[in-house]
């Protein structure tokens, strides 16, 4: 990938400390990772290997001690609008309408009202929620809520977008639609994205690069390049795309290894 590294992680380790008992959970070990501009990096790995931990560190929700993490050249200290997060569960505010949820980031940054309105409308159209501007979250389906969450993050115009299993809580059919749409959105907005998932298919379908984690303590086991132009990434063509199927099978094999070796222990 060309361009500069938007996210740089160097020798990052993490222990969940338990200062009281002295025991600690070793969640991450020696992570080195770079995410370049306009790149889509997917992370897969067995459950409990530290994926969420990594994402929380990058989001600034979890302080770290060992190693470095930088976004756009700035060391990460606490959460900030340069890193947008889409969580797994619906984290949109139930007392704000769709439009007000999407515009929340701009409102917090005191962007003028007129400009906010214009950009909110732009992203509402982009995620296909036109006509739902004044609805409240409880009036939306799970998939629509997740679209709102994505639009909200995009609208704040972050340097990098972090997504932690964003489609894990929706049904299979909706998930496919959302994945197709995410592709379209990525093409339209040219965002840099770090995407965490359980689903090997999802990683192979969305990622320019796919990082496979080992089981705990999480380390980067391998990294696989998936060289499919974004325009060609549509689900109906995928089954017949050898690049996709090969990458998927390879990732699956690697993850399996981790899970089964986990069982032996």
């Amino acid at each position: 990938m060309s361009g500069e590294a938007k996210l740089i992680i160097q020798d990052l380790c993490h222990h969940y400390p338990d200062e009281y008992t002295g025991e600690s959970v070793h969640a991450l070990e020696g992570i080195n990772l770079q995410v370049y501009e306009n790149e889509f990096v997917a992370i897969v790995g067995p459950s409990g290997c530290g994926k969420t931990t990594l994402l929380n560190i990058v989001a600034g929700l979890l302080p770290y001690r060992e190693g470095r993490a930088m976004v756009d050249g700035n060391e990460i200290h606490g959460p900030g609008p340069d890193r947008g997060v889409v969580f797994q569960e619906h984290a949109i505010l139930p007392w704000r309408s769709v439009a007000r949820n999407i515009g929340h980031g701009l409102e917090l940054q005191r962007v003028p009202k007129e400009e906010t309105r214009r950009r909110v409308q732009e992203y509402i159209d982009l995620v296909g929620l036109s006509g739902f501007e004044d609805r409240y979250p409880h009036e939306l389906s799970g998939g629509m809520k997740q679209r709102v969450a994505v639009a909200r993050t995009l609208c704040a115009d972050p340097v990098i977008m972090l997504m932690d299993e964003p489609f894990a809580a929706v049904d299979a059919q909706t998930r496919i639609t959302l994945q197709d749409e995410l592709n379209r959105i990525v093409m339209a907005t040219a965002k840099t994205i770090l995407f965490i998932t359980h689903s090997v298919e999802e990683a192979a379908f969305l990622g320019d690069r796919c990082i496979v984690f080992s089981r705990r303590p999480g380390q980067i086991k391998t990294e696989i390049k998936i060289d499919i132009p974004r325009e060609e990434r549509v689900w109906k063509d995928m089954a017949s795309n050898p690049k996709f199927t090969n990458a998927r099978d390879e990732i699956l094999r690697l993850v399996r290894q981790e899970v089964t070796s986990d069982d032996e222990h």
């Binding site: 929700l61 606490g78 900030g80 609008p81 890193r83 505010l93 980031g105 940054q109 909200r152």
Partner: peptide, 9 residues
């Protein structure tokens, strides 16, 4: 909700 708002700045 709190975390989400914090990440929005």
């Amino acid at each position: 909700y709190i975390q989400a708002a914090r990440t929005l700045g």
